[in-house]
Computed example of a mutant assay.
Amino acid sequence: MRRRTRTSVLALAVALTAAITPGIAAADPAPTVPQATLDAGLRCSADLDGATRTPVLLVPGTGADPKQNFDWTWRRSLAGAGIPACTIEVPRHSMGDIQVAAEYVANAIRRMHGRAGRPIAIVGHSQGGMSPRLALKYWPDTRAMVSDLIGIAPSNHGTAAVLLLKPLCSVLGCPAALWQQSSDSRLLQALNRGGETFPGIDYTVITTDLDEIVLPSTAGNLAAGPNVRNVRVQSICPGRLVEHLGIGLYDNVAHDLALDAITHPGPADPSRLGPGVCGRTFMPGTSQSDFVGNLLLTAAVPFLLNLVQQTTAADRLTREPPLKPWATAG
């Protein structure tokens, strides 16, 4: 009897330790990436500590690094608005296993929340709008740490573009993230099984009718709910000419919708946008004079080099990576 009592007390102590220690949760998947490596992928503005405004985690899309996706546009804008921001860099320019990328996102959420002392918002482009959902689903403690998830042209249900590439990938091989973003991938089936959102988090999905990567563009949408809003930029500005990369890199409408979601309760509300939203091409902090140079030298050329590097890597895959045990059980 005494032995059983001691065992019960020990189990209770372990459970209490997990409950009060930041970053520990009994249901968390076992980490595969060293803590120091996860931490090295996070880069934050100095005003994150004890933030007085909701901090923003910026998550890049497939083939992009934070500098290419955010430094010359989003980070400038958020700094100008007095909003603390962090970027996260995951391996292989976000073209490796998205299940590993989710570990980086979960760690970033915890670190930011701990330093800021308040819930954070996430803004992600393309894959970066989808991968945080993996962190929220499979690292349950992170849900209370996030107020908003804003996906810009996100690959929430994959894309038919990769589906068409699968026969070629089966022969020549493709990076893991391409396989996993096919509209029929096992990873996305696991992610979207059992509900796509969680109460307590507001979800805003921003899409463009001219998306040439996420096909159809409605594949980015999340299931309807009181905490979900799916918004097409053309529903606000008819005929707006912005495609997949532009909507995540510099588009003013996407930017204003994201900031509306971050600074108000609930998801974005287009009715709150200012009357001049459609008259501006670029988000605040991005000017016509430096746009072309940054687009080419900071974004487009490095992005293309990343794609070439990863699609020609010797370890490219001829099939989708297996699901991690935690994704299989989810």
Score class of each variant (00 low, 15 high):
P270F: 13
L10M: 14
T5C: 07
P226E: 04
I109M: 00
P132A: 07
A135Q: 04
M283H: 06
T286G: 03
A329Y: 06
V205S: 02
N230H: 05
A51P: 10
G158W: 04
V100H: 00
H113A: 14
R143L: 00
P322E: 07
R193T: 15
F303R: 01
G248I: 03
A25C: 13
A224I: 09
R3D: 14
Q68H: 03
S126N: 12
G285E: 01
L249K: 03
V59S: 03
M1I: 14
D148Y: 04
L172Q: 12
I201F: 03
I213T: 14
F70A: 01
A190R: 03
R133G: 01
G151D: 00
T263V: 08
G285N: 06
T73P: 02
S8T: 14
L164W: 11
R272V: 12
V214D: 01
G220N: 03
V105F: 03
A161H: 06
G151H: 04
T218M: 02
G114P: 05
H244P: 12
A299I: 12
P31T: 13
T87F: 09
G195D: 10
F282G: 05
V233E: 04
I83T: 14
D290Y: 10
L222Y: 08
M130Y: 10
V253C: 02
P226N: 02
L273E: 02
G276E: 09
E89S: 15
L222E: 00
D65I: 10
T197N: 00
Y138P: 00
A258K: 02
P275V: 05
N294L: 07
N156T: 01
P284I: 08
T281V: 13
G82P: 09
L296G: 10
R143I: 04
A314R: 13
P302F: 10
G276K: 05
S217P: 12
W139V: 00
L10V: 15
P325H: 07
T52H: 15
Q68C: 02
L305F: 11
T21M: 06
R76K: 11
P302A: 02
G246M: 07
G279R: 01
G124T: 09
S235N: 14
S235D: 15
S235T: 15
G225M: 05
T32K: 06
L210H: 14
A329T: 15
M1Y: 15
L222R: 10
H244G: 13
S287N: 11
R111S: 11
N230P: 04
D251Q: 04
H125K: 09
